[in-house]
């Protein structure tokens, strides 16, 4: 029995690694996509949009397969619930990247030139936080020191908060934009910042899982 369990575990290890790759890839696609949108390179933007949709679809399928396997083969019974929650939260993070990129496509918001740099900065902080949480998750699975990466998630989240506040203050203090436009931009900025917030939520849960796993 244990022999086959061992073989399945090797397959599962690979799958989880691939799933984490997808999350990280989605965040990179998101960053590139926003860059192309701001630079008004619409073809490339749409290409990234398609790519991120595929990655998201893939991620969903992978998560389901992992969950099914974990339950069918009764692997890691004591931390199975934690691992499943972690995977689901990471998947929402992935969805979030895709949704924000689609929001650009649907609403076609006009980002004022003055806010271009801030937007790029905000996006890159959100992406950094996603990267850090993916690294933390990998460390969690490999039982190495998670705290090395976890504190970075918080760091990037607070950086993104600062940029968000600054951007919103700038936007609302401008006279050349209608309130309607300001409101749309606020929503967009909040959505981008939410990625980092979600990453921090995952990090908080991960801290607890790590404590629980301490023998």
């Amino acid at each position: 029995m244990s022999h086959s369990v061992l073989r399945k575990q090797i397959g599962l290890k690979k799958r989880i690694d691939e799933f984490l790759d997808q999350v990280s890839e989605a965040s990179l696609l998101f960053k590139q996509g926003v860059g192309f949108y701001i630079d008004e390179k619409h073809d490339q933007f749409e290409q990234k949009l398609n790519q991120i949709s595929t990655v998201e679809h893939h991620g969903d399928e992978m998560r389901r397969a992992i969950e099914r396997q974990l339950y069918l083969k009764t692997l890691i019974p004591e931390s199975r619930g934690d691992v499943l929650q972690l995977l689901e939260q990471l998947d929402t993070l992935l969805d979030c990247c895709k949704e924000v990129l689609w929001q650009f496509q649907i609403e076609l918001p006009e980002v004022p030139y003055k806010s271009h740099d801030d937007m790029q900065e905000l996006v890159s902080y959100s992406v950094e936080s996603v990267e850090a949480i993916v690294r933390s998750a990998r460390a969690f699975f490999r039982s190495s020191d998670v705290s090395d990466h976890l504190h970075k998630v918080s760091y990037w989240e607070s950086e993104s908060d600062k940029v968000t506040t600054r951007m919103l203050m700038d936007i609302y203090r401008r006279d050349d934009l209608s309130l309607c436009h300001k409101s749309q931009l606020k929503d967009l900025v909040r959505q981008v910042a939410q990625i980092a917030d979600r990453a921090e939520d995952v990090a908080d849960r991960l801290t607890i899982y790590v404590i629980k796993r301490m023998l």
Binding site: I10, K13, I76, F141, S143, L215
Partner: peptide, 20 residues
């Protein structure tokens, strides 16, 4: 506990070893 911490096993490897 010391050995496991030092070895830094993957969660699934540890699971398999614990089963055995």
């Amino acid at each position: 506990a010391g050995a496991i911490r030092a070895a830094q096993l993957h969660i699934f490897t540890l699971d398999g070893m614990t089963r055995w």
